[in-house]
C-alpha cells in the first residue's frame, strides 16, 4: 500500500514538473532537436523521437529475424505518417507522451528507464513495456496501448511483414 501511495505521489509530482519544464523549455527544446534531423524530415517526429523509437521497436516487435536499421527506419517513417494523419488533439497527446518518455526525470520515474534511449538495454525496455502494460495507473496502461498500436500498425501494414506470418495479402480479383 505504501509503495502504491509513494508511486502515485512520485507520478503526480513528475507530471506536474513536466508541465512546468515544458512551459519553460518548450520552444528552445524544439529548436535544438531540429538540428539533429540530418537527412530525415518528418512531419511530427523529432530526432529524439527517432532515437527512442529505434530502441523500442525491436523489443515491441521481436520478430524471429532481427530487423536491420533500414527496416526500423521504414517503420518509424510509417509511424510519422500515421501520426500526421491523426486529429490534432491526439497528436498533442502523443507529443506529451513522447516528452514524458524523453525527459530524463520522468523517463526514470515513470518508465524506470535509467539510461538515455540510445544506450538502453533490451531487458530494460522489456521491463518498461511490461510494467506499463499492467500498470496500476490506467493512464499508463492507455499509453502502452498507444505505443503498441502505433508500432504494430506501422509494421504489419507493410507487405514485407506478411510472408513471415503466413499471410498472402489480399486476394487477386482480376
Amino acid at each position: 500500500m505504501t509503495n502504491r501511495r509513494t508511486f502515485l505521489k512520485i507520478t503526480i509530482t513528475s507530471v506536474l514538473m513536466l508541465g512546468v519544464l515544458r512551459f519553460a523549455l518548450g520552444p528552445f527544446a524544439l529548436l535544438k532537436e531540429k538540428k539533429y534531423l540530418l537527412n530525415k524530415t518528418y512531419n511530427f517526429l523529432t530526432a529524439k523521437d527517432h532515437l527512442m523509437l529505434t530502441a523500442i521497436i525491436p523489443v515491441m516487435l521481436k520478430t524471429s529475424i532481427k530487423l536491420n536499421i533500414k527496416e526500423i527506419n521504414k517503420i518509424i517513417n510509417n509511424i510519422d505518417i500515421t501520426i500526421y494523419g491523426l486529429p490534432l488533439e491526439l497528436q498533442k497527446e502523443l507529443r506529451e507522451l513522447f516528452t514524458i518518455l524523453q525527459f530524463p526525470v520522468t523517463r526514470r520515474l515513470l518508465a524506470q528507464v535509467w539510461s538515455p534511449w540510445s544506450q538502453t538495454k533490451e531487458n530494460e525496455i522489456e521491463s518498461f513495456l511490461n510494467s506499463w502494460r499492467k500498470s496500476k495507473l490506467s493512464l499508463l496502461r492507455g499509453a502502452y496501448q498507444g505505443l503498441n498500436e502505433l508500432i504494430f500498425a506501422s509494421y504489419y501494414s507493410q507487405p514485407e511483414s506478411w510472408k513471415s506470418i503466413g499471410y498472402d495479402g489480399p486476394p487477386k480479383i482480376l
Binding site: 523489443v59 515491441m60 521481436k62 513495456l129 502494460r133 496501448q145 503498441n148 504494430f152 504489419y156
Partner: peptide
Amino acid sequence: LSTVIGAHGM
C-alpha cells in the same frame, strides 16, 4: 489483429 492483442514481444 496485431493492434488488438494488447501484448508485445514473443
